[in-house]
Every structure is written in C-alpha cells, then in structure tokens.
Design a binder for these strands. Structure first.
Lengths: 246, 246
DNA sequence: GGATAATACTGGTAACAACCACATGATGTC
DNA sequence: GACATCATGTGGTTGTTACCAGTATTATCC
C-alpha cells in the first residue's frame, strides 16, 4: 500500500487520496455495491485525519464514484457507461470522451457586431462594438456532426486570426493562453428543430431532418459571460447525456 | 440579525445558515459580484465555527449562488433565470418550477413484461417477470406537452392501481410512501426525433414535427434502477435547461 | 516616481476531539 | 418464538487550532 504523503507532491492530500481510491475502484479491487473501508479505518490505512478522508470521499461522491448510507457505510457506485457528465467541455473534449476524433472546417471568422439577442445573453452594453464571430462545420471522424456558430467576447481591440485557431484546435486553450480567460460555468438549453435547406446541405442530410439545437452561454472565472455558442447537431449522430442528482 | 442557533430546530446549523444567506441574496441585500462577509467575520456574526461556515458556503457554491476567489473573497453569483438545474425532478416538479400547471391523461396502466432494451437498462435478470407499465399524455396548462412512457420496478407481487396514481399526481411520492423508494440519481439522454402519425395525433401537432426525446433511468437510494422513463416533448413547447460546471 | 518588500487580509488544507443519528446484530426478557 | 433493549459500528455535525497559499494594500528603498 502506497504511503499517501508525498512531501514532494504539491497537490493536497485529499486530492491524492481521491486518485488512489478511484484507482482501487477502476482496477476492480473494490466492486460495485461493496463497502469501502470505514472512515476510521481509512484514517489508519493512509495515516491522514478523518477530515481529509471525508474531503476525499465527498469529492468522489459528487463525481458519482461512491455513495454513502448513514449508519451502514460508504459503497462503490456501479460503473455507468457515461462518465461524470454535466461537466463543461468543449466540442473537441466531448468528442474525444466519446471515442470520436474531432475535426472542423471554418466557414467564417471575423469581427462583427452581435445580434441583439446574443448581445443581451452576453450581458454587453447596447453600444458595445464588435465581437469575434465564428461559423464552423464540426466533424466527428471526418463526417459532419454539427454546425457551430459562436460569438466570443475579447478584451478591447484584440482579436484572433484564422491560423491561430486552426493550429490550436480548441479555442478554449487559446483564450486561456492569450487572455487568461478560463471557462468555469455555462448555461445550456437544448431543443429539437428541423434542418433548413442551407443547414441540411452543410450537414449532408435531407432538409427537414431533425436536429438537436444546443445554445450555451459560457462564463469565465470572474462570472462574466465570455461566449455564446449555438450548435446544431445531426440527430442521427449525436445524443446528449446528463447525470442528474437529487 | 437573527441568532442562528435554534435549539428546537432539528436541521443542522450549516443548513440553517444556507437558508439565511440565500435569503440575504434573494432579498437583494447582497448584490451580484459583491463580496459577502469573510469566513472569519461570519464566525462572529452567527456565532458558529468556521467549519460550519465553510460547509454552508460550499453548498451554496455548488448550488450556484456564490463563487469563491482564493485570496480575494466570496462573491454573489449573478442571478440566472434558471435555478440549479441538472437536478433530478419529476415532470410535475419540472412544470411547476417553470410556472406551468402540470396535468396528465392516463392512456394505459398495466403490469407487463418490459421490452428487452428496457429490461437491460433496468438491470433486471432475463427471467424477470412483469413491471408496471404506464403511458400518459402529459399536459402543461391543459395543453399537450409530451407523451410519457414509463416502466417501474416494484417489489415482488405488488402493484399500483389507476386510482392511486390519479390521486397522488406524482408517482414519486407514491412510490416513496408505499415502497420507501427514493429517487436519488438518474442518467438521461436527449435527442431530436420526428413525430410519428400516432404521436402527432396525441400531441395535437403535425406528423413530422420535431420532438425532443428524453430517456431516463432513475436509481434509488440503494443505487438500483427503479424506473425507465421515455418522454417525447413537443419541441415548440419545451426546452431543456442544464447548468454545467468545470 | 517606480520598483520592491513587508503586511494584513482572503480562502484552502489539515489535524484532533467530541458528540449526534442511524443501522445492525447480539442479548435478554416475556 | 416474538419482541424490546443494548452495544457497537457506521456516517453526520460541530468546534478549535494551526498553518499554507493566493491577493491587495501599504511602506520602504533606490
């Protein structure tokens, strides 16, 4: 059994503990619906306080790996197909998590004044100038997966060029590098719509086919709206997953 | 300022604190992006330990009411239209949260052997017998909102009758009362589909109209699958909301 | 004036102690 | 045998203390 305290390790103990426990679960050592050692036992095993133990277990419970029962113990959750969803991910991350290779074809990239509805959702003043507008065809394993339209709020006067975006792949890492903007939270709505002729053509499906429309407003670490993203997903190729808790 | 300790109150202090703080936010006393008192100050104000303060703030942060910035303070999140979604709710609760009066028309209610796919999602053995099958037209303010098909796993030999369900309205409260089953977690998938002629007729829309298809498997407090619910929502009347975090 | 260092805040991590609430199985009683 | 009681183990709540790690302001030095 590995000693938990790794003094050279900057990461907090409770976080090291979650990694250890998660590995004991995914390795099959701890089976679904079986109890893990009690909190008092874990204290001895890993030589950390119950405070730390509980902090680690709390996190794993929130991530869906464990569940508690008062008076009985803490148990391993049965493994679900989907990981902890309702996590904020980029299109690329989402695809890779599904085992699909993401790709894109940039149709449009320019500075533009956002439509009124977008401006309001981005909480920008009425006289606000241009934002970065991008329209992209999103691919999964080379096949059209969705049509993405996005508006990005950038610090005054700054912009992004097409080359930079194509090189980076993920726009999130690019925004973080250049402008220190970290997406932290998002509000998303989903609805079903029918493909217009233009959309159908780009997505290589029949007009009138069903599409899953996702509209997302992403907020930075300062809780300021930083982007408005609209994605039209091909219904035959994309399902949305959510994990709900009471 | 109300003294927090209410000795007659069964609910834990940290939970009482969340209620107090949430009210100070919703009342407008604490404004968005403004700092709340520091954790040390709150200790004095409410005469509880920092442990308790942090436990309360943790909960409010997870619910999206507050956000923290290391070294700077804890701040009020801007109020979004939707509250903390990605919460597990029944159709009725969902409707009421949207300010719509829920209703239903039971089309079918019987014990039946579930289809193979449903049986697998419910993690039932191949030779498992009948489960409760219900097909309902779901109404919002009296107008068709969606078509719900559900399969419920009941303790051996037991069942529910039509009258009981119609009286209770929410099947969750009924299951909890009679069988002590508490829905605790759920996996949900969403996709866009087109209405078949039968569905269109029931939902009073044109055949070929877009529908939002939600498939949900709900798990009890023991992490056993307890129901499989499929809802076809009219796309013109229903949007799905999700709050995502990093 | 402008960079730098000290300092005084903020939240984050951690240990230790004590007690409460719930579940379960052993024990005792009738 | 049926049932109440108790002991013990589990997670849940709370307090106290200490120190670490970021942030912002102030004082200091050059």
């Amino acid at each position: 059994m590995p000693a938990i305290v790794d003094p050279n390790d900057y990461t907090p103990k409770y976080y090291q503990l979650t990694t250890i426990l998660r590995e004991r679960i995914s390795s099959g050592e701890l089976l679904p619906h079986q109890p893990i050692p009690s909190e008092r036992q874990l204290e001895d095993i890993y030589s950390v306080s119950r405070t730390t133990i509980r902090q680690a277990i709390d996190l794993l419970v929130r991530q869906g790996f464990l569940y508690r029962e008062h008076g009985r113990g803490t148990f391993v959750s049965p493994q679900k197909l989907q990981k902890g969803i309702s996590e904020l991910t980029s299109f690329s991350e989402d695809m890779r998590a599904r085992g699909i290779e993401p790709g894109q074809k940039i149709l449009e990239l320019e500075m533009a004044v956002p439509p009124e509805e977008v401006r309001q959702r981005l909480e920008l003043p009425a006289d606000h100038g241009e934002v970065l507008f991008i329209e992209r065809l999103r691919l999964g394993d080379g096949v059209p997966m969705g049509l993405m339209t996005s508006y990005h709020v950038l610090p005054d006067g700054l912009t992004l060029d097409r080359e930079g975006l194509e090189a980076a792949g993920s726009i999130y890492s690019l925004l973080q590098e250049k402008f220190h903007l970290i997406p932290t939270e998002a509000d998303e709505t989903l609805e079903a719509v029918l493909a217009t002729p233009r959309e159908a053509g780009l997505l290589q499906i029949a007009a009138g086919s069903p599409l899953l429309l996702s509209v997302r407003v992403t907020y930075s670490q300062y809780r300021r709206a930083m982007e408005y993203v609209k994605i039209l997903y091909r219904a035959d190729r994309y399902q949305y997953f959510a994990k709900l808790t009471r």
